[in-house]
Design a protein around this nucleic acid. Structure first.
Length: 273
DNA sequence: CTTGTAACCTGTCTGC
DNA sequence: TGCAGACAGGTTACAA
C-alpha cells in the first residue's frame, strides 16, 4: 500500500523520533520478510547514530554515522509503530534509542523488506539501480515522459505503475492522477497526444503533493508513525468509489479488475480514445 | 524487448 | 455464528 506519500509521511514521522539519536538496541523478531534481514544487521546498527532520514521512491532511508543506510520498504501492509505500549504479532523489527524511544516495524503480509547498504553505494543497490525518476523531481517532465512512453502499447495505467518509468506511484495515486488529467486508464500509452503529457505530469505532481500535505491516505493497515491517520482518503476522486457519482460530472465511477488489481475511473471525464 | 498473469502472505469484510 | 470467497497499498518471476 504505502505509496510515495505514505512513505514520505512515515519518514517524516520517523525523523522526529530518530534524527541524531543513537540506536541502543536492534531486535529482529522475525527476519523473513520479502528478503531475509542482513545477517549483520544487529551488529552494524547497534550503537550507531542516525544522521539523516530520507526517501527514494517507496523506500525509506535511515543513514547512520557508520556509513550505512537502513533501507526499508513497507510492502502492502507495513508500518512503523512508535513507542508501542505492547508487542503485537507481526512486529518484525524493534529498535530502541538511547533516548528511550521505541519503534516497531509491523508488517502482517510480509511483503516489505529491510536492507542495509553502504550509503556511498546506494545508487548501485539492486532495487534502486533500475528505478525511474522521482515524480516530484525535476527529471520527471513532459519530455521525459514522451520518450518513455513512445511506441508503448500497454495501458497508460500499467506503465505509470512501472517503477522503472516513474518511481513511487501505486494503484491509488495512478487512478487519482489519471482522473485529474482526464485520461482513460486503459488508453494505450504511446497513443496519448504529446500535448497531454505536460498536464499529466502536473496532475501526478499535484495529486502526490496534496496527499503528502494531508499526511497520506489511510487504509486498513496504514497509520502515521505517531498514530494519527492520514486524511487523503477523504479526498479520493475515484479510488474506492465505484458506483458513486463523480464529483466533477456526476457520472457513476467505474471499477474494473485486471490482473488482480482494481482500476477506478470516470468514463465521462476520462473518455476512451 | 513487451505484455499480461500468477504468486508471495495475512487479515478483513461480505454474503450465504 | 460459521464459513467460503473476494479483496487489499507492491514487487517479481515467468510465460507467451
Amino acid at each position: 500500500m504505502p505509496e510515495l506519500p505514505e512513505v514520505e509521511t512515515t519518514v517524516n514521522g520517523l525523523r522526529a523520533v530518530l534524527a541524531g539519536e543513537r540506536l541502543a538496541a536492534v531486535s529482529p523478531r522475525r527476519a523473513d520478510l520479502r528478503r531475509p534481514f542482513p545477517i549483520d544487521l544487529v551488529q552494524r546498527l547497534t550503537g550507531a547514530r542516525v544522521t539523516a532520514l530520507g526517501r527514494r521512491a517507496k523506500y525509506g532511508l535511515i543513514d547512520t554515522d557508520r556509513g550505512d543506510t537502513l533501507v526499508f520498504h513497507l510492502g502492502m501492509s507495513g508500518r512503523w509503530r512508535v513507542d508501542p505500549a505492547q508487542d503485537l504479532p507481526h512486529d518484525h523489527l524493534v529498535i530502541e534509542t538511547d533516548g528511550g524511544r521505541r519503534l516497531a516495524l509491523n508488517d502482517p503480509r510480509r511483503f516489505g523488506s529491510v536492507d542495509l547498504v553502504e550509503t556511498a553505494k546506494l545508487a548501485a543497490f539492486l532495487p534502486f539501480a533500475a528505478l525511474g525518476p522521482e515524480p516530484l523531481g525535476s527529471d520527471f517532465d513532459a519530455a521525459y515522459l514522451a520518450a518513455a512512453l513512445a511506441g508503448r502499447q500497454a495501458p497508460i495505467k500499467a506503465l505509470l505503475l512501472d517503477q522503472r518509468i516513474v518511481a513511487g506511484l501505486g494503484n491509488i495515486y495512478v487512478c487519482e492522477a489519471l482522473h485529474l488529467a482526464g485520461i482513460a486508464p486503459g488508453q494505450s500509452a504511446g497513443g496519448i497526444a504529446v500535448a497531454r503529457l505536460g498536464p499529466l505530469v502536473t496532475a501526478i505532481r499535484d495529486t502526490l503533493s496534496a496527499a503528502i500535505a494531508a499526511g497520506g491516505s489511510s487504509l486498513r493497515d496504514y497509520a502515521r508513525p505517531d498514530g494519527e491517520l492520514g486524511y487523503f482518503s477523504k479526498q479520493w476522486r475515484v479510488y474506492g468509489r465505484a458506483g458513486t457519482p463523480c464529483d466533477t460530472c456526476g457520472a457513476p465511477v467505474q471499477r474494473r479488475a485486471e490482473g488482480g488489481r482494481s482500476t477506478f475511473w470516470c468514463a465521462k471525464c476520462q473518455p476512451s480514445a
